[in-house]
Structures are given as C-alpha cells and as structure tokens.
Simulated assay, not measured.
Amino acid sequence: MNKPELVNAVAAVTEERKAATGAMIDAVIVTITDAVTTGDTVQLIGFGSFSTGARAARAGRNPATGAEIQIPAAKTVKFTAGKALKDAVNAS
C-alpha cells in the first residue's frame, strides 16, 4: 500500500474528504519524524514504537575491489511492532 492508497482507505473509514485525510496523515508523519529526530520515542499502543538507535563504527569491505573500508558510526531509526500488530500478522 502506498500513500495515496492509505489516504483512500482512511478516508473511506472516517468518511472525511481525501484532502483533509491526506493533510492529517502528513501531520502525523511530520510529528513522528520530529519526535524521533529529537531522540524521543513514539509509542502507538497496539501498533508499535518508533525510536532511535546507534550503530557503532566498523570495518567493512568494498564489494567491487575487496579493499577494507571504515564504516562510520551512525544513528538509525528503530521500529518495534506492538503485540496487537504481531498477533494480527500471525493470524493471517
């Protein structure tokens, strides 16, 4: 499902206009992005949690040449599925 399909599905359930639904979905995405960017954890009970994590610097290999390279440390985004989402996926 892509974003326009999500907007259509949510608009059908809420019986709102697609434009208003699209704006609401955009606002939710921006709010979650802002919170996770500042280091907060966003928990949506039953769905899951968005948070940040850290990946340590490490050595890797260039697949084209086989030469060893240094991969720098980086922040990463983590999503942990909630129990209700896990149960729904496993039930289908």
Results as ranks from 00 to 15, higher is better:
V7G: 05
A59F: 00
G22R: 13
T41S: 15
L85T: 13
A64I: 10
V28S: 03
S51M: 09
A74S: 15
F79I: 14
P63T: 00
M1H: 08
L6H: 15
I25H: 04
A74V: 11
Q43M: 11
A23L: 14
I32H: 10
L85W: 15
R55N: 10
A19P: 02
Q70T: 15
R61C: 10
G60I: 06
V77L: 11
E68P: 03
T52F: 00
S49V: 01
K75L: 02
P4L: 07
N90E: 13
M1P: 03
L85S: 11
N62V: 06
F79H: 14
K18P: 07
I71T: 00
T21S: 04
Q43G: 07
E5W: 12
T31P: 06
A27D: 07
D40V: 02
T37I: 12
T52D: 00
V36S: 01
R61P: 08
G53C: 05
A88R: 13
T76P: 10
R17Q: 13
D87C: 09
G82M: 10
N2A: 06
T41V: 06
A88W: 09
A11V: 04
V89E: 03
A20S: 10
G82I: 12
A20L: 04
D34V: 00
E68F: 01
V42E: 13
F47S: 04
A11Y: 03
R17L: 15
A56P: 11
T76G: 13
A67R: 14
T33L: 04
V77E: 08
M1C: 00
A27N: 05
V7A: 08
G48A: 13
E15M: 03
V77K: 11
S92M: 09
I29L: 15
S49I: 02
P4K: 07
D34M: 05
A23T: 11
G53L: 00
G66F: 07
G66E: 14
L44T: 00
K86P: 08
G46S: 08
A12Q: 12
A64G: 14
F79Q: 11
I69S: 06
G48L: 12
Q70R: 15
N2S: 08
V7I: 15
A23S: 09
D87S: 14
A35S: 02
L85I: 09
T33V: 07
A23R: 12
A59V: 10
E15P: 00
P72S: 06
A9C: 03
P72N: 10
K18S: 05
A57G: 06
T65S: 04
G22S: 13
P72D: 09
A11W: 05
T33G: 05
K83F: 04
V28D: 01
V36R: 02
G48I: 14
I25R: 09
G82A: 12
P72Q: 08
K83Q: 14
V36P: 06
A11T: 13
F50E: 01
G82C: 07
A56D: 14
A81P: 09
G66I: 14
S51C: 10
E16T: 07
G39N: 10
T76V: 15
G82W: 13
G82F: 11
V30W: 02
N8Q: 15
I69T: 12
N90F: 04
V30A: 14
I25Y: 03
V7N: 05
S92R: 13
G60R: 00
K86H: 08
G66K: 14
I45T: 14
M1A: 06
V7C: 05
A56K: 15
L6M: 15
Q70I: 07
I71C: 01
A35C: 01
